[in-house]
Design a protein around this nucleic acid. Structure first.
Length: 555
RNA sequence: GCCCUCGUAGCUCAGGGGAUAGAGCAACCGCCUCCUAAGCGGUAGGUCGCAGGUUCGAAUCCUGCCGAGGGCGCCA
């Protein structure tokens, strides 16, 4: 691509003038202002100090060297500001971008930065004690999108869900379910959620009378997993593996991990418990692995689990956790390192929690009333695409405020429609063109020089940058960057649509624009696909009140 | 006390070393004989929490302080 050609030309210019290479990457960016060219480099500023000369003088020397041996498509190089090198390209470079997009098709935006990598991505992993909480939807949407991004960079990604089915959480859950079944209130520290009442009724219908606590626990466990799978299926996420904690205990993996840690000299006995000397690996304090009552801690089990993942053959492990588990990161990483696995494994992506609101008021989870809001509740009211994109609107480092009224009642203002509409418009134009008997000729036979309108240029520039956006989003584990790109791109397209008619009497222009919008469609569909959001061929029409035609307007 | 994240327009948030800080919503003013107006254009709106420091250049990096959220169990 043109970008690499310019970088190479810059390197050559540096070498030719005897200037040093900058310490970091050779930065080449797209300036915010069009006057600053198509691409801009700050090498002269970076190198000026080492060279001991004014930046603009260095820039001039580089510009002269570049002029002597100009890269393809570069019309001119200007020096601006404190010493930026601004590359102004001939419009033809964007026509190359269009051809590249079409040639790549579904593959456009793919990268090779993780080629060959085998990654295990664990996310959601909510306890099998009920349906998914609405806030948990964030990890569903984010996790699936990150998996898509890693896949887009060439990695083989395995989506995994860890079922904590061996701890006392499940016992508490079973006791609570049995209490509801018997018409009692759940224990003080039990599960208060009202969904248990419904579950208990279903259990009675299935199992009849005389259910024991163990039977309640096992029935409830299976039922909860069924509900989790159902919720995930509704939003379109499928896991490759549902890993049961119980299997770790059954196969003796927890005991084995304890043995190995002991043999490696990383444990000690104190106060009747077995401790992991995790401070050796940077933890703030040592951690208990085996309690004085002989049972293992969550950490011990989790270490066995992560060792199991490595043994199954992944070369990189990623966990997505809510920030409320931040305190466990160092302990787990210390333990895996103590077991002999690479430092820094597993990589833990921490996401801030979701605050639920309704009409601006916080939704309180009342222990007594047990009025939890589930993901299923949201999916009852909004399209899965709306739900997903809402969770992917912002970076995961910020606590998200999820207002149920805004997301549900005002769903017509959700950005998802804005973006999907752009895609639908493109397909619609294709239908109109076909109906008018206009056929798109092979791209190789089409002259793209008519594409010179500012709107057209903007679209192609955005498409040119898209692969970089995807690569960066993958590297930073930040799917919202794709959301930001696709929103901006949809805006560009709507502007183009308004100003540039595609199907006209001007045959050469029509041909060029038909291919332009096809390239746009590829970009939109790809970005939406990475986010797990559909790219529809048509949208419902709205009447003047903003209500979907054919549906009753809400009053 | 210690650790992590955040603080940017009235609201929700992008931007995380570059040139004049952006978008959506809300407000105001315009645009449908024409491929879907779930659209487009314009106006208004900012001491980028505060104070220092590093740098040719800081919303961005460092330190401190203030504020918000989360964590620091022989719970999971």
């Amino acid at each position: 691509m043109i970008r690499d050609e310019i970088v190479q030309a810059l390197r050559a210019a540096l070498a030719a003038t005897g200037l040093p290479e900058p310490a970091g990457d050779l930065a080449l960016e797209t300036p915010k202002l069009r006057e600053h060219g198509d691409w801009s480099s700050n090498v002269a500023l970076q190198v000026a100090k080492q060279a001991g000369r004014p930046p603009r003088e260095v820039a001039q020397e580089l510009a002269d060297a570049l002029a002597a041996n100009p890269p393809a498509n570069v019309a001119r190089v200007e020096i601006a500001g404190p010493g930026f090198l601004n590359f102004h390209l001939a419009p033809t470079w964007l026509h190359d971008v269009l051809r590249a997009v079409v040639a790549a098709g579904d593959e456009y935006g793919r990268g090779e930065s993780l080629a060959g990598g085998r990654i295990n991505l664990e996310f959601v992993s909510a306890n099998p004690t009920g349906p998914l909480h609405a806030g948990g939807g964030r990890w569903v949407a984010v996790g699936d999108a990150i998996a898509n991004l890693l896949d887009a960079q060439g990695a083989s990604v395995h989506r995994e869900y860890y079922l904590n089915d061996a701890g006392n959480q499940l016992d508490t859950f079973g006791a609570s379910l049995l209490a509801r079944y018997e018409g009692r209130e759940p224990p003080e520290d039990g599960y208060q959620g009202e969904y248990l009442v419904e579950m208990a009724a279903r259990m009675r219908a299935e199992l009849g009378a005389g259910v024991t606590e163990e039977e309640a626990r096992e029935w409830g466990y299976r039922e909860a997993v069924r509900m989790l799978r159902e919720d995930l299926a509704r939003i379109g996420v499928e896991f490759d593996t549902w890993f049961s904690e119980r299997t770790l205990h059954e196969r003796g993996e927890v005991a084995d991990v304890l043995k190995v840690l002991g043999e490696r000299g990383h444990t000690y006995e104190q106060d009747g418990a077995t401790w992991l000397r995790s401070t050796t690996f940077g933890d703030q304090r040592d951690r208990v692995l085996v309690k004085s009552d002989g049972s293992t801690t969550y950490l011990a089990n989790d270490l066995a689990y992560h060792r199991d993942k490595f043994v199954r053959g992944w070369d990189h492990l990623i966990d997505i956790w809510g920030a409320d588990h931040h305190g466990q990161v160092k302990s787990l990483q210390a333990g895996t390192e103590a077991l002999g696995f690479p430092a820094g494994e597993p990589e833990v992506i921490l996401g801030q929690l979701v605050r639920l609101q309704r009409g601006g008021e916080p939704v309180r989870i009342s222990k007594r009333a047990g009025n939890i809001v589930t993901l299923a509740d949201i999916l009852d009211e909004v399209d899965p695409d709306v739900c997903r994109l809402t969770f992917l609107l912002q970076g995961i480092d910020t606590a998200q405020t999820f207002d149920l009224d805004v997301v549900t009642a005002q769903s017509m203002e959700n950005p998802v429609y804005y973006v999907q509409y752009a895609h639908a418009r493109i397909v619609s134009i294709g239908r109109k063109a076909a109906a008018a008997g206009v056929e798109r000729r092979p791209l190789a036979d089409v002259d793209l020089t008519p594409l010179a309108h500012e709107r057209e240029i903007e679209l192609l520039r955005a498409l040119a940058v898209y692969p970089d956006v995807v690569a960066e989003a993958a590297a930073l584990r930040a799917p919202h960057r794709v959301t930001t790109w696709v929103r901006d791109f949809a805006k560009d397209f709507h502007g183009f649509y308004r100003d540039c008619r595609v199907v006209t009497d001007d045959a050469p222009l029509t041909q060029a624009r038909l291919w332009l919008i096809e390239a746009c469609r590829i970009g939109l569909a790809d970005a939406l696909g990475l986010l797990g959001v559909g790219a529809p061929d048509e949208m419902a029409r709205l009447d003047d009140d903003g209500a979907v035609e054919g549906e009753e307007a809400e009053t």
